[in-house]
């Protein structure tokens, strides 16, 4: 008789390239599709978020100065690694109530989406840049550049695809990310962090937290060292407070309302542009 007991994984936060527990020591149980509590997840605190932002800020310089080509390579690498672990993701999604067919579709689209943005890495700047006619002896051109640290509150529908569809465009544009996983189904987000970790992303460039948006959204939106915030929730009160807080230091706010991430409309270079600033340079020319 096989008396072996399976080893259960402890799901932790992903901060600065490390899988750490929440400093608060708080956990919340996650119920599977049959209503049975199966895993305990870290309930990230504002201090975990603060740490994540600190490391994300540190990572901005290194990540944004990678060549566009290299950023694309790393995104492609994430897709490759994910492909190799497809089964595990399908199983995890399935375990928490998503049918096997839907789960398979979601994981496959996620992989394709990462490849899609990997392809855009060294093209979107060429597409959205311009040489501007000016009436002086200057060569004048505008180029999209990264914003800095982007805080993302993931949607609950399509927990894996939604997360990846929000992270990928911001990340490929040279930003670093602090992301709160889907509240209802955060499991795949932490497993996705393992994929990121195995894909040569610099420490701190993407940080993933699990916890409650009702608790953390205030800090996501009010932290002065965050340059942009993305959210998708339907709680109007919460959305209002996010916008008010974010306006304090004029964060770039993006509210993606009911976007179907499963279709082609869920991907576009304009999502990269949402996390870019246009930098215009005036260069004198001799006559």
């Amino acid at each position: 008789m096989n008396s072996r007991i399976d080893i259960q994984k402890t799901y932790k936060l992903y901060i600065n390239g490390k899988f750490s527990r929440t400093e608060s020591g708080r956990y919340f149980p996650l119920k599977d599709s049959r209503g049975k509590a199966t895993v305990n997840l870290c309930q990230a605190s504002r201090k975990d978020f603060r740490e994540a932002v600190k490391f994300a800020r540190k990572a901005v310089g290194g990540w944004s100065s990678r060549t566009a080509y290299n950023r694309g390579q790393i995104l492609y690498r994430i897709a490759e690694t994910l492909e190799g672990r497809k089964k595990q993701f399908i199983q995890e999604l399935n375990h928490f109530g998503i049918t096997k067919n839907n789960a398979t579709q979601e994981v496959e689209i996620t992989i394709d989406r990462l490849v899609y943005y990997a392809g855009w890495a060294d093209k979107y700047q060429a597409l959205f840049s311009s040489v501007n006619p000016v009436s002086s002896a200057h060569y004048n051109f505008s180029v999209p550049e990264y914003q800095g640290v982007i805080a993302i509150i993931s949607p609950n529908d399509n927990p894996l695809l939604g997360l990846a569809s929000l992270i990928a465009p911001a990340f490929v544009g040279g930003n670093t990310i602090v992301c709160l996983a889907s509240e209802k189904n955060p499991l795949t987000a932490i497993t996705f962090a393992e994929v990121l970790h195995a894909s040569d992303i610099p420490n701190g460039a993407v940080n993933i937290l699990t916890g409650f948006s009702s608790e953390l959204a205030e800090h996501f939106s009010s932290h002065k060292d965050v340059n942009g915030i993305v959210y998708c929730g339907e709680n109007l009160e919460l959305n209002k407070s996010i916008q008010e807080n974010a306006s304090e230091n004029v964060k770039r706010i993006h509210y993606y309302d009911k976007i179907n991430w499963l279709i082609n409309k869920g991907q576009s270079p304009y999502f990269i542009m949402d996390h870019s600033e246009i930098k215009t340079t005036w260069h004198p020319i001799g006559s």
């Binding site: 603060r50 932002v53 800020r57 009010s222 932290h223 002065k224 060292d225 807080n245 230091n249």
Partner: peptide
């Protein structure tokens, strides 16, 4: 203020 600060300011 209650909000975490940034070195930018």
């Amino acid at each position: 203020s209650g909000a975490y600060q940034s070195a930018d300011y």
